[in-house]
Computed example of a mutant assay.
Amino acid sequence: MDRSHDALTLQMLDWIEQGKPSYAEVLDVWKSTCPRLTIWEDACASGFVDSTAGMAGTVSLTEKGKRFLSQTSQPG
């Protein structure tokens, strides 16, 4: 991943971790039809997020997503 993509991925993961949004909220905010801005789709493919069934279901970070967020967010 390039750095700009990482920054947006981290922003999304942090947003999910802070608010426990519904699946519908996540899609409303993060789903894109732009082939160069696939933050939500890439996070799903990378195994960073998990969701319960249905549009009203909640989205949360997987252990892999939590590790990526904590490791990549560290200064240095």
Score class of each variant (00 low, 15 high):
Gly54Pro: 06
Leu61Cys: 10
Thr52Glu: 15
Cys34Val: 02
Ser46Lys: 14
Cys34Trp: 01
Thr33Cys: 02
Thr38Gln: 15
Gly47Ala: 14
Leu61Trp: 09
Asp42Thr: 03
Thr52Ala: 13
Thr38Met: 14
Gly47Gln: 11
Trp40Ala: 02
Gly57Leu: 10
Gly54His: 09
Ala45Trp: 05
Ser32Tyr: 00
Gly65Arg: 10
Glu41Gln: 13
Pro35Gly: 11
Ser60Phe: 03
Asp42Ile: 01
Ala53Leu: 12
Thr58Asn: 02
Thr33Met: 06
Lys64Tyr: 09
Thr52Leu: 12
Thr62His: 10
Asp50Phe: 04
Cys34Glu: 13
Ala53Tyr: 14
Ser60Lys: 12
Glu41Thr: 14
Ser32Asp: 01
Lys64Met: 13
Arg36Asn: 09
Asp42Cys: 07
Leu61Pro: 04
Leu37His: 08
Trp40Asp: 03
Ala43Gln: 06
Thr33Ser: 09
Arg36Lys: 10
Ile39Asn: 05
Ser60Asn: 04
Cys44Asp: 07
Phe48Tyr: 15
Ser32Met: 00
Thr62Asn: 08
Phe48Asn: 12
Thr62Ile: 04
Gly65Glu: 12
Thr62Leu: 05
Ser51His: 10
Glu63Lys: 10
Val49Ala: 05
Leu61Lys: 13
Gly57Phe: 07
Pro35Met: 15
Leu37Cys: 07
Asp42Trp: 01
Gly54Trp: 03
Ser51Met: 08
Cys34Phe: 08
Cys34Leu: 05
